[in-house]
Design a protein around this nucleic acid. Structure first.
Ligand SMILES: [Mn+2]
Ligand SMILES: [Mn+2]
Ligand SMILES: [Zn+2]
Ligand SMILES: [Zn+2]
Lengths: 138, 138
DNA sequence: TTCTTATTGCAAATTTGTTGCAATAATATG
DNA sequence: CATATTATTGCAACAAATTTGCAATAAGAA
């Protein structure tokens, strides 16, 4: 899995350093997108500043993407490091449900085509109540 | 237009104060979502802290929503104060294109139904290059 | 008009993000 | 493997953004 990463970095002329590996590993080990504060805590040996710089670089290179998430933003690996998908977010219990919707991807393409827009990325999120929280009437 | 707002506030037991009117008017007068910093500058008579508190309240009451916007977040009025829509964002020139897509709304409903999820709101954004910036090869 | 209390503004603290620069370590090369 | 080159790091210091506590104010009820 680091091979892919080495390839991207080598091609672009960047160095694969230990702080960058650490941030990558934390993201790779997580089921869900992570807030910067969480990543900082998860990499106690890496300076705060390097986390910011690393996430900026990762996002610029398309290794990570910024995910809308209630009030804050979070970071998540993108394809090919994590398959492209979106989220349903329960505002009551905080649970995240991954969704892989072919229809949604088609709509993205259709909208871009109609507007003569060249899409690079897209964000999508539904917030509301999960099955469980609907039942336990909130 | 303030009538609608009065109604929401009265029903919820909140007071319609001059800081809250000011923030609402700034958002209502804007074509596009606004960053907090912009709203603060646009309301010179309102204390910074009150802007934060007001936007928190508006969002909690569903009067505004947080819009993903590159690295930062922005605020925009929701329906019925502003018709529901989404954005295409050109990462080169910063232009915003409003889109009203019936297909997208249908997909949102379909996904929620499939997952037995009760949707309250959704975010959507495509980033990429607008027609103009594609031409002036970037 | 008076009363009640939600809301505001201010000051201060905290948290989050940025910058400059010398020390370090990743990679290329012999 | 040893050395040279230079991208990257960590640290310190700064700057900006957001939060908190509380007394003064003003919105809405009576
Ligand atoms: Mn996910
Ligand atoms: Mn808009
Ligand atoms: Zn839930
Ligand atoms: Zn453009």
């Amino acid at each position: 899995m680091h091979n892919e990463l080495e390839t991207v970095f080598a091609k672009e002329g960047y160095r694969l350093t230990s702080p960058r590996r650490a941030v990558f590993d934390v993201l790779h080990g997580s089921e869900s997108p992570l807030a910067i504060a969480v990543i900082i805590k998860a990499c106690p040996d890496v300076d705060r500043v390097s986390i910011y710089r690393t996430l900026e670089l990762f996002t610029r290179l398309g290794i990570t993407e910024i995910i809308p998430f209630g009030w804050k933003q979070r970071y998540e690996l993108t394809s090919p490091f994590k398959p492209h998908h979106h989220h349903l977010y329960c505002t009551n219990c905080g649970v995240l449900i991954d969704i892989h919707s072919q229809k949604l991807e088609q709509v993205v393409a259709a909208i871009a085509r109609e507007q003569d827009f060249q899409p690079a990325a897209h964000k999508f999120e539904i917030t509301g109540l999960c099955r469980h929280c609907q039942a336990n009437i909130q």
